[in-house]
Nucleic acid binder design. Structure first.
Lengths: 390, 390
DNA sequence: TTGTACGCGTTATCAC
DNA sequence: GTGATAACGCGTACAA
């Protein structure tokens, strides 16, 4: 009961709320049947910048003259509520253009139905595309997706992680920045009870669920294909050595060499920082160091594409002199000439898988078992590695 | 005062809250100096799926033995609080790993410090890139960004708009889907008091703030350049006629023709739906209808790039037989051969401008004056339109 | 300087 | 079936 005294009979225990008038609470004294509003002016102008008042379930309740709890139940089709009240509540709700307040719902239910996604860079087609997969699965389940990009900075990754957690996301899907070597920011929230899924660039030491690309097999297939074209000295342009992805792709490369009895040469392995400059620098280096190379396998399509341009500018013929292959099937690879041989990653499906794994863990509850999924890909052979049959 | 009776003296008005014991509220009866907790067991297991309990300011208050309001003020460096309490509060907060609950803050302050962005497609480089601009400006101001893509569907655009509003975003930045012709979903929220900024594909009938690309001048520059190369029959591959962007670019095209006294030919104007298939279909159509064309100006880079590939497959020489130009400076245009002449849009700056306009309106409050900003671009000339000097 | 009490909008748990 | 009311976590006007 509101702490309001009736200005007529001055009694407090007879006063009832009775709707809103011009944004102010209107009261009714049961004892003397006297309608009034509170007189004290709350400064309304100060909140002019803020959102104008939305209609709430309280408004609906007051309008009809029933309790808020009834309104709440009626709106969500609770079986206890009679058909009649349900109808009238919904009618009034529509009339007043009622929009439920998600914030209040989240606070009360202790869940936001929001999942946070952290990716290194949204401008990379791979991430943009997989986001679509995530969003589709999420929105089908009635979940929203918040996206943030670390721009490959460990610091922003950490900041974003905290931001998501203070915003009570119901789950975190993360692909670490290439700088990231410490995982304290993840460990901190491991016991928060929400599912944390790593994808692509994962962390080995953490016992979380993971979704991985088919890195080993992909690199294996690409290398095998290059060997099949007659290449024997295949340079590998990789990324930072500490990244698991790089290790895996190196592993696939190595596996293919072994299987085909091609001798291993340390000189052929280059570690870039995945930036274009660094990649081209490595290429130039290898052209000097080991000029007899007959193929370049770059761990990223974007790199491979720039390598093609670079080699063409140098007058090196592709694929006659040097075959080039990438990884990831970026759309550009289809446009460039010669077309880039690459490994297609099914980005959309990858995103879907990540989201699905999240929901699986959500259903299993706090005691889910972390597991790893791998999304298969397929080799795409284009001209950059298709040597004319002798 | 809690509605709890002391189990000893059975009086209600002497009971005070006195800290937490194992997650339960502990009470103290002032009258008989008797400590107790409420006995009824709340089932704790049911919420196992939900987020585990975070430490709140109440916990801090109880730990130190001060009021929550003091804690609240101490944490946000309110000048009223003594240095000593401030210190101890912050110390305990750190010890308990306190994270403020953004939800509760938002609910209480009636602002979420979140801005919603709706774009047609995140996989388009233009949008991905401008998002970075938006996010940088936003995060600098302490705002989060929520992104959703309509995937060019009017229906999802409407759904997403509602979702953002029920989530109480503090602002809405929107680029409409190409399907969108009705703007009721925007009008509905025009009086909600939050700034709504349109960008790129805007709506003429709405009196909102807008950020536009330099469409007229851009198309003018491109067309002028083509004319300078000696082209006289320039085909324009445009998008849906109802889109303002298309109208504007057509206007620029027209302006350039007029200035150079080149006769207008309706046959040269094609409206696609901006999909690749539709664009190439229009190109084929025009090659038949008006085979004498000497240039193609496609309103989108992605289209122009596919046109280049298409023409090359047909054995048409670029730029000798037909010059090609695009609009937008997508990264691919630099890679393709011949390099694509295009109009650079400064996507990053564009995003920044959109976000800045939002903040300007936020500061101005409810009675801001809608205004329009235009972000300039610049012509980039590449081989696809560089005819050898006769 | 610090504490009390209420509002924010909704859900859940009682009691009737 | 429906109503009253306590959470949910935080901010704050007002009281002390």
């Amino acid at each position: 009961m509101p702490r309001v005294k009736c200005p007529k009979c001055t009694k407090e225990h007879h006063v009832l709320k009775a709707g809103f008038i011009r944004g102010k609470q209107r009261y009714l004294c049961k004892g003397c049947d006297y309608h009034f509003t509170v007189f004290k002016e709350k400064q309304q102008d100060k909140s002019s910048r803020k959102r104008s008042r939305q209609t709430t379930i309280i408004d609906i309740a007051n309008a009809i003259g029933i309790a808020v709890s009834t309104v709440s139940r009626a709106l969500k089709d609770h079986p206890d509520i009679s058909e009649q009240t349900r109808q009238s509540v919904k009618k009034v709700a529509a009339e007043l253009n009622y929009q439920p307040n998600t914030l209040a719902q989240s606070l009360s239910k202790r869940e936001t139905r929001t999942i946070g996604v952290i990716i290194p860079d949204i401008e990379t087609h791979f991430f943009a595309s997989m986001l679509t997969g995530i969003q589709n699965v999420a929105s089908e389940a009635g979940y929203k997706v918040m996206i943030s990009q670390s721009k490959e900075s460990h610091e922003t990754e950490v900041t974003n992680t905290h931001a998501f957690m203070t915003n009570w996301v119901d789950g975190l899907l993360i692909c670490h920045s290439k700088e990231t070597k410490s995982f304290d920011h993840i460990k901190l929230y491991m016991k928060s009870g929400i599912p944390i899924i790593h994808f692509d660039r994962v962390c080995e030491e953490l016992e979380n669920s993971k979704v991985l690309l088919d890195d080993v097999d992909g690199a294996f297939q690409v290398t095998e294909h290059l060997i099949a074209q007659g290449c024997k000295r295949i340079a590998l342009i990789s990324g930072p050595a500490h990244l698991l992805v790089c290790k895996k792709r190196l592993e696939g490369y190595q596996k293919a060499l072994k299987r085909n009895n091609i001798p291993w040469d340390d000189q052929l392995i280059c570690h870039s920082d995945l930036s274009i400059d660094s990649i081209l620098q490595q290429v130039d280096g290898i052209l000097v160091k080991a000029e007899t190379i007959d193929a370049i396998f770059c761990i990223s399509d974007i790199g491979a594409i720039r390598i093609i341009v670079h080699l063409k500018n140098k007058g090196i013929k592709i694929p006659e002199q040097v075959c080039v292959a990438g990884f990831g099937n970026e759309p550009m690879g289809e446009i460039i000439e010669p077309g880039l041989t690459t490994f297609n990653l099914q980005t959309y499906k990858f995103g879907e898988t990540v989201a699905q794994l999240f929901f699986e863990q959500l259903i299993e509850g706090t005691d889910f078992i972390p597991r790893t999924k791998i999304v298969k890909g397929n080799l795409i052979i284009r001209k950059s590695s298709s040597r004319p049959i002798d």
